[in-house]
Design a binder for these strands. Structure first.
Lengths: 152, 152
DNA sequence: ATTATTTTGCTGTACTTGCAATAAAAATAT
DNA sequence: ATATTTTTATTGCAAGTACAGCAAAATAAT
């Protein structure tokens, strides 16, 4: 009874879901990956790019460029924080916020599809197991992103 | 008792794991994503690019370019199939095959880290649940990639 | 057998991704 | 208070990703 592989499964599922979203959101004039950022900014108005990158587990510079593009497209706005002028807080514009329901609907649908063959109980088990996996993997991600080495 | 979100969890975990692998495989002179293809070609010598793309849930052209680069780097070779001259079968070179144990070791370690807080039983449950998720998501991926629309 | 369709490989173009490096503001240390 | 370190934003490269579209071989249909 050895440990089964879950890495590959997680990778393929994630790529498939991301590809689906990217294709479908072309109808909303969103290019690859943009939906990720827009959704989070709508849900957490005032968030800064750095925290967005950490949440999404994306490179800081990648997040920065994605955010810049959303600004250019008029979907979000940057406002220098009052207390901390270094921080630029991100807020959806009216246009950006108008996209949110559509993004959410698609995401909810994909989630339903993903869980279609699972009972409600199994779905909650899966979520709980993934939470544990996420914690461990995130710790290593932080280490490696900061230049640390892993022992293997 | 509603359906919990698993999409985001899966996405963040996948990005974190991919980022870790990409950073660590820089030491093997592999650039972003290359490890994915090399590992599979080592494990399934003779596979064609099209099937590789389908397995990985990656765009055909992306897989093609990744494969081309592995050839240029001398890590794999393309051979026209005897029975079907259209198909180009992929094989690792001696150099490519020599990298495999290192790739495998890293992957195994990451998998161990991911499953560190799970019992063996839970790990198998997770794998089983992911298999079900994968099946459903893949079906939609195929549909959407072929230009189909989903009802939502 | 001939035509139509599917499969596979490939290229042009446009975009995203991310490492390295810089600057500036803020937080911490002395 | 001043110096040091951390945090955040940003840009210059260099590379991956993927849609659209083409060509050739193979398969299916008639």
């Amino acid at each position: 009874m050895t440990q089964p592989d879950v890495l590959r499964q997680i990778g393929t599922i994630a790529r498939a879901l991301d590809a689906i979203s990217n294709v479908e959101f072309q109808a909303l004039a969103l290019t690859k990956g943009q939906y990720l950022y827009l959704v989070r900014i709508c849900e957490q108005p005032g968030i800064i790019t750095e925290h967005l990158a950490q949440q999404l587990r994306v490179d800081r510079t990648t997040a920065n460029r994605a955010v810049q593009k959303l600004v250019t497209q008029g979907l979000i706005e940057k406002h220098a924080a009052k207390i901390n002028r270094k921080n630029k807080e991100l807020f959806p514009t009216a246009t950006g916020l108008a996209r949110y329901p559509q993004l959410k609907r698609e995401n909810t649908y994909s989630n339903q599809v993903a869980l279609a063959d699972l009972s409600i109980d199994e779905a909650h088990q899966l979520a709980a197991l993934l939470a544990k996996v996420s914690e461990r993997v995130t710790a290593d991600w932080t280490t490696v992103k900061q230049g640390g080495h892993r022992p293997y």
